[in-house]
C-alpha cells in the first residue's frame, strides 16, 4: 500500500501540503480531484520519489510503481515499440523478450504492426497517450501513478482511454492513483474519490464509489458530486454551479451518443 503520512511540503510561494494523509490500497483506483495548482501533481511526484516532503513520511509498499505523466514523454527518436520496450530495458529484460512483450501489449491497445514501428511524431495524440500507458503497464506494476494523462485530448479519445485504463485495471487488479481536474473523468474511473481543496491541499470530500460507465449517468453523478457545497467550493464553483447545471441537463436529454454507448457496452 501507498501511504502519505502527515506530509507537509512548501515551495517558495507558501505551503502546498500541510499535514496531509492518504492511503492507496492494493487493487483500488483512487482519484484525486482538485483545481489546477492545488497540489495534486506534487502528491504524485512525492509518491514517485521525485520529491521529498519537508515533514511527514511517504511509504510506498508496492513492489513496482509506474508513472504516466501529463505529457506522453516519449523518446522522439524511438519507435512506439522501442518506447514501450524502454521500460523493460530499464529493468534489464533481454531484448527479444522485451520486444515481444511490447508488441503484444501494443496490439492489445489497438496498434497495427506498422504503427508500432512509427516514431511518436508520426502518431496522433491519442496514439501517443496509448504508448505512454503501455510503457507504464508493460512492467506489470502493482501501482500506477497517472497525472492528468488525458488532459490534452478531445473528449471522445479521453473516454476511449479511460475505458482502456478501467479495463486493464479491472482485469489485473492494479492500484491506480489518478489525478485530474475533470469531474466526469473522476466519476468514470474512481473506486474511491478524493476531492482536494486549493492550496494547501486538504481532503474536503472522500467517498467509495462505483465507477460509472453509462454516459448519461456519468453527468448525473458528476452533478450530484458538484451539488455538495464542500466539493463545489473546493473546485471554486460557488454554491450550485451555474455553468455546470444546463450542461448536465443538456447531456441528460440528448439522445445517447452512439460512440459512448458502444464503448460502454464493449
Amino acid at each position: 500500500m501507498l501511504r502519505f503520512d502527515k506530509i507537509s511540503l512548501g515551495f517558495g510561494d507558501g505551503p502546498v501540503l500541510k499535514n496531509f494523509s492518504l492511503e492507496v490500497l492494493p487493487g483500488e483506483v483512487v482519484v484525486l480531484l482538485g483545481r489546477s495548482g492545488c497540489g495534486k501533481t506534487t502528491l504524485l511526484r512525492l509518491a514517485a520519489g521525485l520529491l521529498r516532503p519537508d515533514a511527514g513520511r511517504v511509504a510506498n509498499g508496492f513492489s513496482r510503481t509506474a508513472v504516466v505523466f501529463q505529457e506522453p514523454r516519449l523518446l522522439p527518436w524511438s519507435s512506439a515499440r522501442e518506447n514501450v520496450a524502454f521500460a523493460l530495458a530499464a529493468r534489464g529484460v533481454p531484448p527479444a523478450e522485451r520486444d515481444a512483450c511490447a508488441k503484444a501489449l501494443l496490439a492489445r491497445f489497438g496498434f497495427a504492426a506498422a504503427d508500432m514501428e512509427k516514431r511518436p511524431l508520426a502518431l496522433s495524440g491519442g496514439m501517443q497517450s496509448r504508448v505512454a500507458i503501455a510503457r507504464a503497464l508493460v512492467v506489470e506494476p502493482d501501482l500506477v501513478l497517472m497525472d492528468e494523462p488525458f488532459a490534452a485530448l478531445d473528449i471522445g479519445l479521453r473516454r476511449d482511454l479511460q475505458d482502456l485504463v478501467r479495463e486493464t485495471v479491472e482485469s489485473t487488479r492494479r492500484a491506480v492513483l489518478f489525478v485530474t481536474h475533470d469531474v466526469t473523468e473522476a466519476v468514470r474511473l474512481a473506486d474511491r474519490l478524493v476531492v482536494l481543496s486549493p492550496r494547501p491541499a486538504k481532503i474536503v470530500h472522500e467517498a467509495r464509489t462505483v465507477p460509472v460507465v453509462d454516459p448519461a449517468r456519468i453527468h448525473m453523478a458528476a452533478a450530484a458530486l458538484l451539488d455538495r457545497p464542500e466539493v463545489s467550493g473546493a473546485l471554486m464553483l460557488s454554491g450550485r454551479p451555474p455553468a455546470a447545471t444546463p450542461v448536465e441537463e443538456g447531456y441528460a436529454e440528448m439522445p445517447a451518443v452512439p460512440d459512448c454507448v458502444s464503448g460502454a457496452a464493449g
Binding site: 489497438g110 504503427d115 516514431r119 511524431l121 502518431l123 496522433s124 496514439m127
Partner: peptide, 18 residues
Amino acid sequence: ERGEGASRPAAARPVGAG
C-alpha cells in the same frame, strides 16, 4: 530521419480513436 513523421501529415492521421 527522426523528424520524418512531422513532414508527412498524411501519415499522422489514421486510426487515432481506435
